[in-house]
Protein backbone atom coordinates (compact mmCIF):
# COMPACT_ATOMS: atom_id res chain seq x y z
CA UNK A 1 0.00 0.00 0.00
CA UNK A 2 1.27 3.46 -0.83
CA UNK A 3 2.21 5.69 2.07
CA UNK A 4 0.89 8.83 0.37
CA UNK A 5 -2.05 9.07 -1.94
CA UNK A 6 -3.10 12.52 -3.13
CA UNK A 7 -6.08 12.60 -5.47
CA UNK A 8 -7.47 15.60 -7.35
CA UNK A 9 -6.38 17.96 -4.65
CA UNK A 10 -6.83 21.69 -4.99
CA UNK A 11 -6.01 24.39 -2.51
CA UNK A 12 -7.19 27.97 -2.67
CA UNK A 13 -5.95 30.75 -0.47
CA UNK A 14 -7.78 33.96 0.06
CA UNK A 15 -5.30 36.75 -0.20
CA UNK A 16 -7.18 39.86 0.72
CA UNK A 17 -10.10 39.71 -1.75
CA UNK A 18 -8.42 37.67 -4.46
CA UNK A 19 -8.39 33.90 -4.57
CA UNK A 20 -5.00 32.33 -5.07
CA UNK A 21 -5.15 28.87 -6.59
CA UNK A 22 -2.01 27.39 -5.03
CA UNK A 23 -2.85 23.86 -6.18
CA UNK A 24 -5.30 23.01 -8.95
CA UNK A 25 -5.96 19.30 -9.17
CA UNK A 26 -2.86 17.46 -8.04
CA UNK A 27 -2.74 13.66 -8.06
CA UNK A 28 0.31 11.92 -6.67
CA UNK A 29 1.13 8.53 -5.22
CA UNK A 30 4.24 7.84 -3.15
CA UNK A 31 5.25 4.29 -2.25
CA UNK A 32 6.94 3.30 0.98
CA UNK A 33 10.69 3.60 0.82
CA UNK A 34 10.74 6.19 -1.93
CA UNK A 35 13.22 9.07 -1.89
CA UNK A 36 11.26 11.62 -3.82
CA UNK A 37 12.08 15.14 -4.83
CA UNK A 38 9.43 17.76 -5.57
CA UNK A 39 10.80 20.41 -7.89
CA UNK A 40 9.34 23.56 -9.30
CA UNK A 41 9.81 27.28 -9.50
CA UNK A 42 9.12 29.58 -6.61
CA UNK A 43 5.42 29.93 -5.96
CA UNK A 44 4.53 26.75 -7.82
CA UNK A 45 2.92 25.17 -4.77
CA UNK A 46 5.63 22.91 -3.29
CA UNK A 47 5.22 24.07 0.28
CA UNK A 48 1.45 23.94 -0.03
CA UNK A 49 1.59 20.32 -1.20
CA UNK A 50 3.95 19.28 1.60
CA UNK A 51 1.73 20.98 4.17
CA UNK A 52 -1.27 19.04 2.97
CA UNK A 53 0.62 15.75 3.06
CA UNK A 54 1.98 16.68 6.50
CA UNK A 55 -1.56 17.16 7.84
CA UNK A 56 -0.94 20.70 8.99
CA UNK A 57 -3.38 22.07 6.43
CA UNK A 58 -6.52 20.81 4.75
CA UNK A 59 -7.25 20.78 1.00
CA UNK A 60 -10.05 22.82 -0.53
CA UNK A 61 -11.13 19.79 -2.57
CA UNK A 62 -9.78 16.29 -3.12
CA UNK A 63 -8.48 13.49 -0.93
CA UNK A 64 -5.20 13.23 0.96
CA UNK A 65 -4.38 9.80 2.37
CA UNK A 66 -1.36 9.30 4.59
CA UNK A 67 -0.37 5.88 5.91
CA UNK A 68 -3.65 4.53 4.59
CA UNK A 69 -5.82 7.02 6.46
CA UNK A 70 -8.09 9.56 4.79
CA UNK A 71 -7.01 12.72 6.59
CA UNK A 72 -10.35 14.47 6.06
CA UNK A 73 -11.99 11.82 8.22
CA UNK A 74 -9.66 12.16 11.17
CA UNK A 75 -10.32 14.27 14.23
CA UNK A 76 -7.88 17.04 15.14
CA UNK A 77 -6.59 14.79 17.87
CA UNK A 78 -6.03 11.82 15.57
CA UNK A 79 -4.33 14.12 13.05
CA UNK A 80 -2.01 15.36 15.77
CA UNK A 81 -1.21 11.78 16.69
CA UNK A 82 -0.55 10.97 13.06
CA UNK A 83 1.87 13.89 12.84
CA UNK A 84 3.58 12.85 16.04
CA UNK A 85 4.02 9.17 15.27
CA UNK A 86 4.20 8.84 11.49
CA UNK A 87 5.56 12.08 10.12
CA UNK A 88 8.76 14.07 10.57
CA UNK A 89 8.58 17.62 9.24
CA UNK A 90 11.50 19.84 8.30
CA UNK A 91 10.19 23.34 7.81
CA UNK A 92 11.49 25.81 5.30
CA UNK A 93 12.19 28.21 8.13
CA UNK A 94 13.41 25.80 10.88
CA UNK A 95 10.81 26.78 13.50
CA UNK A 96 12.78 25.81 16.57
CA UNK A 97 11.61 26.50 20.11
CA UNK A 98 13.72 29.44 21.22
CA UNK A 99 13.53 28.79 24.94
CA UNK A 100 14.81 25.23 24.68
CA UNK A 101 18.38 24.12 24.10
CA UNK A 102 19.38 22.34 20.90
CA UNK A 103 19.32 19.02 22.73
CA UNK A 104 15.88 19.71 24.18
CA UNK A 105 14.52 20.80 20.80
CA UNK A 106 15.54 17.52 19.27
CA UNK A 107 14.33 15.56 22.28
CA UNK A 108 10.93 17.25 22.37
CA UNK A 109 9.02 14.93 19.97
CA UNK A 110 10.26 11.95 21.98
CA UNK A 111 8.93 13.53 25.14
CA UNK A 112 5.59 14.11 23.46
CA UNK A 113 5.52 10.49 22.35
CA UNK A 114 6.57 9.13 25.72
CA UNK A 115 7.84 5.59 25.95
CA UNK A 116 11.59 6.03 25.95
CA UNK A 117 13.61 6.35 29.14
CA UNK A 118 15.74 9.37 29.75
CA UNK A 119 18.90 7.44 28.91
CA UNK A 120 17.41 6.00 25.72
CA UNK A 121 16.37 9.46 24.63
CA UNK A 122 19.83 10.84 25.35
CA UNK A 123 21.46 8.16 23.21
CA UNK A 124 19.04 8.76 20.36
CA UNK A 125 19.38 12.54 20.46
CA UNK A 126 23.14 12.49 20.86
CA UNK A 127 23.49 10.11 17.93
CA UNK A 128 21.47 12.38 15.67
CA UNK A 129 23.29 15.52 16.75
CA UNK A 130 26.47 13.77 15.87
CA UNK A 131 25.13 12.59 12.53
CA UNK A 132 24.14 16.13 11.50
CA UNK A 133 27.46 17.44 12.80
CA UNK A 134 26.42 19.59 15.75
CA UNK A 135 27.25 17.26 18.61
CA UNK A 136 29.05 19.97 20.55
CA UNK A 137 26.13 22.42 20.33
CA UNK A 138 23.66 20.42 22.40
CA UNK A 139 23.59 22.93 25.24
CA UNK A 140 23.29 26.00 23.04
CA UNK A 141 20.11 27.87 22.37
CA UNK A 142 18.94 28.12 18.74
CA UNK A 143 19.60 31.86 18.77
CA UNK A 144 23.31 31.15 19.26
CA UNK A 145 23.54 29.10 16.08
CA UNK A 146 24.05 29.99 12.42
CA UNK A 147 21.30 29.39 9.88
CA UNK A 148 22.93 26.21 8.68
CA UNK A 149 23.30 24.88 12.19
CA UNK A 150 19.67 25.62 12.95
CA UNK A 151 18.63 23.77 9.85
CA UNK A 152 20.55 20.75 11.10
CA UNK A 153 18.76 20.92 14.42
CA UNK A 154 15.47 20.96 12.52
CA UNK A 155 16.58 17.92 10.54
CA UNK A 156 17.56 16.07 13.69
CA UNK A 157 14.23 16.91 15.31
CA UNK A 158 12.34 15.55 12.29
CA UNK A 159 14.29 12.30 12.28
CA UNK A 160 14.45 11.62 16.00
CA UNK A 161 11.18 9.68 16.24
CA UNK A 162 12.22 7.50 13.28
CA UNK A 163 9.02 8.34 11.45
CA UNK A 164 7.77 6.33 8.48
CA UNK A 165 7.57 9.50 6.43
CA UNK A 166 9.81 12.56 6.43
CA UNK A 167 8.68 15.70 4.67
CA UNK A 168 11.36 18.28 4.06
CA UNK A 169 10.73 21.70 2.61
CA UNK A 170 13.98 22.81 1.00
CA UNK A 171 16.14 21.09 3.60
CA UNK A 172 19.39 22.31 2.10
CA UNK A 173 18.41 25.79 1.00
CA UNK A 174 20.20 27.47 3.87
CA UNK A 175 23.26 25.27 3.94
CA UNK A 176 26.64 25.43 2.25
CA UNK A 177 27.07 22.68 -0.28
CA UNK A 178 29.22 20.50 2.00
CA UNK A 179 26.72 20.54 4.89
CA UNK A 180 23.87 20.15 2.45
CA UNK A 181 25.60 17.10 1.09
CA UNK A 182 25.99 15.67 4.62
CA UNK A 183 22.33 16.11 5.32
CA UNK A 184 21.29 14.49 2.08
CA UNK A 185 23.66 11.62 2.84
CA UNK A 186 22.12 11.21 6.30
CA UNK A 187 18.62 11.15 4.87
CA UNK A 188 19.70 8.76 2.16
CA UNK A 189 21.18 6.41 4.73
CA UNK A 190 18.03 6.41 6.86
CA UNK A 191 16.09 5.74 3.69
CA UNK A 192 18.27 2.79 2.82
CA UNK A 193 18.64 1.35 6.33
CA UNK A 194 15.14 1.83 7.80
CA UNK A 195 13.13 2.20 4.64
CA UNK A 196 12.01 5.66 5.70
CA UNK A 197 10.09 7.46 2.98
CA UNK A 198 11.40 10.94 2.14
CA UNK A 199 9.62 13.64 0.20
CA UNK A 200 11.55 16.86 -0.15
CA UNK A 201 11.21 19.98 -2.19
CA UNK A 202 14.23 21.63 -3.68
CA UNK A 203 15.49 24.01 -6.32
CA UNK A 204 18.94 22.49 -6.32
CA UNK A 205 19.71 20.10 -9.22
CA UNK A 206 22.56 18.52 -7.22
CA UNK A 207 20.12 17.60 -4.48
CA UNK A 208 17.55 16.33 -6.97
CA UNK A 209 20.21 14.04 -8.36
CA UNK A 210 20.09 11.96 -5.16
CA UNK A 211 16.38 11.24 -5.47
CA UNK A 212 14.79 8.08 -6.89
CA UNK A 213 12.39 10.22 -8.79
CA UNK A 214 11.46 13.83 -9.35
CA UNK A 215 7.94 15.21 -9.40
CA UNK A 216 7.85 18.49 -11.22
CA UNK A 217 5.12 20.92 -10.38
CA UNK A 218 4.41 24.21 -12.00
CA UNK A 219 1.60 26.65 -11.37
CA UNK A 220 -0.20 24.31 -9.02
CA UNK A 221 -0.31 21.20 -11.21
CA UNK A 222 1.97 18.20 -11.57
CA UNK A 223 3.88 18.68 -14.79
CA UNK A 224 5.41 15.24 -14.73
CA UNK A 225 7.14 12.53 -12.79
CA UNK A 226 10.42 11.10 -13.92
CA UNK A 227 12.89 8.62 -12.50
CA UNK A 228 16.27 10.22 -11.86
CA UNK A 229 18.06 7.88 -14.23
CA UNK A 230 16.03 9.30 -17.13
CA UNK A 231 17.19 12.80 -16.32
CA UNK A 232 20.86 12.18 -16.57
Amino acid sequence: MSIISVRDVSKDYLLGKTQVHALRGVTLTVERGEFLSVAGPSGSGKTTLLNLIGCVDTPTTGVVEVAGRDTSRLTERALTDLRLHQIGFIFQSFNLVQVLSVFQNVEFPLLLQGGLTRAERAVRVQGLLEAVGIREYGRHRPSELSGGQRQRVAVARALVTRPALVLADEPTANLDSQTGQNIIDLMREMNRKDGTTFVFSTHDPKVMAHANAIVRIADGVVAGREPVGAMA
Binding site: G54, T80, L84, L96, V97, R157
Partner: peptide
Protein backbone atom coordinates in the same frame (compact mmCIF):
# COMPACT_ATOMS: atom_id res chain seq x y z
CA UNK B 1 1.80 32.05 17.36
CA UNK B 2 4.56 30.69 15.18
CA UNK B 3 6.06 28.64 17.95
CA UNK B 4 2.68 27.23 18.90
CA UNK B 5 2.09 26.31 15.26
CA UNK B 6 5.40 24.49 15.12
CA UNK B 7 4.71 22.56 18.27
CA UNK B 8 1.28 21.61 17.02
CA UNK B 9 2.81 20.57 13.68
CA UNK B 10 5.33 18.25 15.28
CA UNK B 11 2.53 16.57 17.18
CA UNK B 12 1.66 18.49 20.33
CA UNK B 13 -1.99 18.06 21.29
CA UNK B 14 -4.20 21.05 21.92
CA UNK B 15 -4.67 20.32 25.58
CA UNK B 16 -0.90 20.31 25.95
Amino acid sequence: TREIGTLRAIGMQRRK
